[in-house]
Structures are given as structure tokens and as C-alpha cells.
């Protein structure tokens, strides 16, 4: 796997500062880059600034200091629409993002806005409802679906717009484990199908972050850590200060170490640890 900085930067924020009330900064001079084709996880506890960050990048809040660059262009009022059209968003609450009266209508909503011809639209709906395993539900009412199914419809609607970046804003926080698994498998399939697709997830799920390519940690509006999961999760003290827990793999490795059973440093994921223990 190439290291992160060998990849092309697709999104970059420079010195981003934002305040809701003009007194306290919700974000404080935050800079980082997101690379094409990677899965980046932005983590931090409730109130760390991660949702503010997402809203700024998605153009839902304005009046910030600093710069946001997407696809090599600086985000301005004049190019906001065209840049934003290449970024899809899946929100936390599955019930807050439906507009259509059927699943098919809902997937079609963005396409209708873009005035895609009817025949072509039908094809796209078919393609992405299959991709998300929702093709049997096209005539159903979204409100009668399970949480995981609703989020899959939301994702189908986002993918139908062929975005280059998909943002998941705590999109699995309200789902049960099965729903969560469905979404993470779907994200894997999406990335396999289109290796250039960039996925950014704002998440509480430390296990999800441990499986990503790139982890950014925010705390009190400041960026605290930025690197591969392996690099980031080796900073235990800092993570504890940020009220974040460690992934299961790291906790277990540490517990073994503290009891005098050392695991070599080159064991960096759960599968490797299983194999090492069973040798």
C-alpha cells in the first residue's frame, strides 16, 4: 500500500477557524489534507468540533477564517455549487433525509434536480438500488424500512450523483450492529468498484477508525493527531486526554504487555495478532 503522502490530495483545509458566538472558537486553526481513494476517519468526543468541521466543508456554515480546497480549487461563493455537487453526504438520522414517497422517487430526487432524462434516470436508479441491495424495495415507502435499509437508500441517492467524495456524518450511530455491518460492507464494495472514490467518515466508532487508512483526531476545536491508524493509536496518553478509547486490538495488546507478555511491534492488526498467538 502506498503511504498517505504519495497519494493525490483531494480535499484540504488550511487554518480553518470558526466560532458560532464570536467568543469561543468551535474550530481553532485546523489544517489537514485528505487523499484521493482513501477512507479517512475524523474522530473526537461529543463537542470536539468534528460536526462543525463537516458542516464547513459541506458548505452548510459560512463565515469562517482559513481556506478550504477541494479538487485543486479554493472553495468560494462562485464555485461552491460546482464543487459541492461532487461531494455526497449521508447524515446521522435516517429519518431526516427522505423527500420521496417511494424508495425509487427518493433515489431519483437528486437526478431530477439535475434534469437527467427519464430513461437514463431509470437505468441509474436500477444500478444503484442493486449496488445497495435495495432493488426489491423500490416501490416501498422509505418510512417503513429499517434503519440500515434507510441509510442504504440514502447512500444509493448519493451514489447516483456519482460523487468523488462521500461524507458519512455519524451515519451509523443510530443503527443496530446488523445495520452498521451492512453499511460498512457497502462502503467496502463502493470503494472496490471505484478505487478513486474518497470516503470521509465522522465517527464515534473506534473500531471503524482502526480499519480506515487515515485518522484525524479533533479535541476542543484543535487537531490533536493525524496519521495512519497505527501511528494515531500508538499515542495512548493523548487519546486518553481526549476522552477517546483505544481499538480492541490495541487494548488487548497493551493488556498482554502489562502482564509481561510482549507482542512484537510489527503485529499491527487483529488478524496478525490472532496468527501470532496461534503459531
Amino acid at each position: 500500500m502506498p503511504t498517505l503522502d504519495e497519494k493525490r490530495t483531494i480535499l484540504e483545509v488550511k487554518g480553518l477557524t470558526y466560532s458560532y458566538d464570536g467568543e469561543k472558537n468551535a474550530l481553532n486553526d485546523v489544517s489537514f489534507a485528505v487523499f484521493e481513494g482513501t477512507h479517512t476517519a475524523i474522530i473526537g468526543h461529543n463537542g470536539s468540533g468534528k460536526s462543525t468541521m463537516a458542516k464547513l466543508v459541506m458548505g452548510l456554515l459560512t463565515g469562517y477564517k482559513g481556506e478550504i480546497w477541494a479538487f485543486g480549487e479554493k472553495l468560494e461563493k462562485s464555485n461552491m455549487r460546482s464543487l459541492r455537487s461532487r461531494i455526497g453526504i449521508v447524515f446521522q438520522n435516517p429519518d431526516n433525509q427522505f423527500v420521496g414517497s417511494t424508495v425509487a422517487d427518493d433515489i431519483a430526487f437528486g437526478l431530477e434536480n439535475r434534469q437527467i432524462p427519464h430513461d437514463e434516470m431509470q437505468k441509474i436508479i436500477e444500478e444503484f438500488s442493486k449496488e445497495t441491495n435495495m432493488e426489491r424495495y423500490l416501490e416501498r415507502e422509505p418510512s417503513n424500512l429499517s434503519g440500515g435499509q434507510k441509510q442504504r437508500v440514502a447512500i444509493a441517492g448519493v451514489l447516483a450523483m456519482s460523487p468523488d467524495i462521500v461524507f458519512f456524518d455519524e451515519a451509523t450511530a443510530m443503527l443496530d450492529p446488523k445495520g452498521r455491518r451492512e453499511i460498512s460492507e457497502l462502503v467496502m464494495r463502493m470503494r472496490k468498484r471505484n478505487p478513486k472514490l474518497t470516503v470521509i467518515s465522522i465517527t464515534h466508532d473506534i473500531e471503524e477508525a482502526a480499519k480506515s487508512d487515515h485518522v484525524i483526531v479533533l479535541e476542543g476545536g484543535n487537531k490533536i493527531l493525524d496519521g495512519t491508524p497505527n501511528e494515531v493509536f500508538s499515542h495512548e496518553e493523548k487519546l486518553r486526554e481526549c476522552n477517546l478509547s483505544l481499538p480492541f486490538f490495541v487494548t488487548l495488546k497493551n493488556a498482554l504487555k502489562s502482564k509481561g507478555f510482549n507482542v512484537p511491534d510489527d503485529i499491527t492488526d487483529i488478524n496478525a495478532l490472532e496468527d501470532y498467538l496461534c503459531r
Binding site: 473526537g44 468526543h45 461529543n46 446521522q92 455519524e170 450511530a173 443510530m174 464515534h204 473506534i206 476522552n243 477517546l244 478509547s245
Partner: peptide, 10 residues
């Protein structure tokens, strides 16, 4: 614990 961060959940 739904929707809480890991430390909040603990």
C-alpha cells in the same frame, strides 16, 4: 449508550 462517544458510553 446509543450515539454516545466511547468514553461517554462507559
Amino acid at each position: 449508550t446509543a450515539g454516545l462517544d466511547p468514553v461517554g458510553a462507559e
